[in-house]
């Protein structure tokens, strides 16, 4: 392969772009190409590329698979005729390629149009507030109504974003690992063991469940608790472990101090 022909997959905006390039390079039109002929080149290019991000690679691989299917159909004895619904994979891929080629041309045309349009300039808006307007619904269109609604939303948002409103009250967390740990110890105070489920109040909010669970994990890791379960899905029981000493759970969440 000469230098002039040296290409890498990264230059292309997807597998169809690459296929299109290979077809043009062979100086063929889409209608004339036997896809088998460029399958080898396509696969060779993929082989040369050692690093590709997964998302990109999957798109390229999917087209490689289509090419191989087409090639294998061409090489092997004719399979039974296709049913009417089933499109010949070569035809399907060629149609996709033609469609893509049209869009690529459209994209180029749009690009030119954009560059050309950018040569006409506009002024920045004047910073003059419009006087309040009377509501006039005659002759209005749905679009105009919607535009009015949108601008109202914009105004509202701008108001809400003023400094006073940015200051919000932050509520202290109702459930902390510390108070849940204390709760667990209280439950265990006069009993040898408790069932896991009894640690939660009825209709416990999600936060309570999550934080209680975290507290159990924390206490387990500190060897303050032991869990027993007779069999999978059997009830889980909590016990204090023999060597549990600490009753001070301040270590558990330092941020708690802020609310004390």
């Amino acid at each position: 392969m000469t230098d002039a022909l040296h290409i890498t997959i990264e230059q292309f905006d997807g597998p169809l772009d690459l296929l299109l390039h290979l077809i043009t390079r062979a100086e063929l039109r889409i209608e004339e190409i036997a896809l088998c002929e460029i399958t080898g080149q396509y696969l060779e290019l993929m082989r040369q590329t050692d690093a590709m991000d997964m998302e990109q690679a999957s798109a390229f691989l999917s087209v490689a698979a289509q090419l191989l299917l087409i090639k294998s159909r061409a090489l092997l004895p004719r399979p039974p005729a296709l049913t009417e619904q089933e499109e010949d994979p070569a035809q399907a891929l060629l149609r996709q390629l033609r469609e893509y080629q049209v869009i690529k041309e459209a994209a180029a045309a749009l690009q030119t149009a954009w560059e050309d349009a950018a040569r006409a300039y506009t002024r920045l808006p004047e910073d003059i507030a419009l006087p309040p307007q009377k509501l006039e619904l005659e002759d209005t269109t749905l679009q105009a109504l919607f535009a009015a609604y949108q601008s109202l939303l914009g105004k509202r948002q701008a108001q809400e974003e003023t400094v006073q409103n940015i200051v919000r009250r932050v509520k202290p967390d109702a459930f902390t690992i510390r108070n849940r740990a204390a709760h667990i110890l209280r439950c265990l105070a006069d009993k040898k063991s408790v069932r896991f489920e009894t640690l939660f109040s009825e209709d416990a909010p999600r936060m309570e469940i999550v934080v209680t669970f975290l507290a159990i994990l924390e206490m387990l890791s500190r060897n303050e608790l032991r869990l027993t379960q007779a069999a999978p899905f059997a009830p889980i029981f909590l016990r204090r472990s023999a060597n549990a000493q600490t009753t001070d759970h301040a270590y558990m969440d330092e941020t708690d101090d802020a609310y004390d």
Binding site: D13, G14, P15, A59, V63, Q96, Y100, I103, A107, L110
Partner: peptide
């Protein structure tokens, strides 16, 4: 970029379109 222009032209010329329709023409996500 080219990928934005392709996507834009599909939406512009074929609207309304879904993301899937865009992707099936471009062959990439």
């Amino acid at each position: 970029s080219q990928s934005l222009m392709e996507t834009l032209s599909i939406v512009a010329y074929r609207q309304p379109v879904t993301r899937l329709e865009v992707e099936s023409i471009r062959g990439v996500r």
